[in-house]
Amino acid sequence: MSRPGVLVVFLALLTVPATSQTGGKWQFQTRMQVGSEYDSNIFESTRFPVEAMAARGLLKTSASRMLAQGKLALGWSAGMQLYPAWTAENKLNHLLSAAWGRALSRWWSISLKANAQAKLFLRAPYDHVWTWTAAGSTFRLPAGLRLKVQAASARLDYRASDRFDFLERSLVADLGRRFARRWQAGVGVEQGRLEFLRPAYFAGENGVRIIRAAQQQDTRRTFFLRLAYSGSRVIQIRLELQSNDSNSEGYSWQRRRLYLVAAQPLATSWLLRIALMGQRKRYTPTDLAIPLIELDLERSESNYLVIDLTYDRSRQFSWLVRLALYNNEAAFRGFYYSKRQLLFGSEYRF
């Protein structure tokens, strides 16, 4: 999506909160967040970290409406990070989302979902758009089981280069069941096919990389388990075993991944929220004769822990402190950079 196009869409959406009070059947929610953020490594370097302060803002608007033919939900999130000392890092993040769902019977429902995220650098040529669309169907089975099947398509598109762009098509099946009133567990499999615009490589003699005639194609298989608790606190855990087979040498890997998100009210007005992702990736082959640079940061390994402590002054207004620790794989395979972010901010929901 072009930058003017994105701006037009977002400006149009800006009018939504203004009309929210007269929404009729539409239900609107808006969330505004502003804060100051310390970043210990803004260029995500493995050896020479540069720290800086940034101003950060977020505006999220969502709207939903019950229709005769199901329910429609729309959302727009606009994020902004401004680094006064390092303007090349200034960027805008936009996430547009839409979902429609309809129950065809008590046992069968269908849904369509779409997301588009645009990351726009104000003074650097790294703009990119990521889109995701999915069509799903959920079935209620005997014994309280629920089966969800979903076909999805994702696409990454850098404005300045095709080298990292890809298209992914995937199918996922997820079988879940609620138990002990407040728990829910599920198991699922996912099969995905990624097609890159860049050529595939193989390692020739003397460490020379030879370009294949074909483009890079990866096949990804995922097996996952999930567990969720919902009550006075909310916990969601997902464990994944994933394998990626590529026709380009050095891009095949296996990994185990855990992610967890949780929310726990503490004392009155205090809320603790945690997001954790940890993964172990093993490349096959483990050693490469040639140095492999994976510049596609969209797909690199990510380990993080984000802890958020919020104090609610009222139902609408909160103060928040958020600490984020990252240990991510860098542009060079097997190298990692660390990063700490500390945010002090406030949030207004209306």
Partner: peptide
Amino acid sequence: LFDPLSES
């Protein structure tokens, strides 16, 4: 939205 890798 603010994850450095957009992989969240």
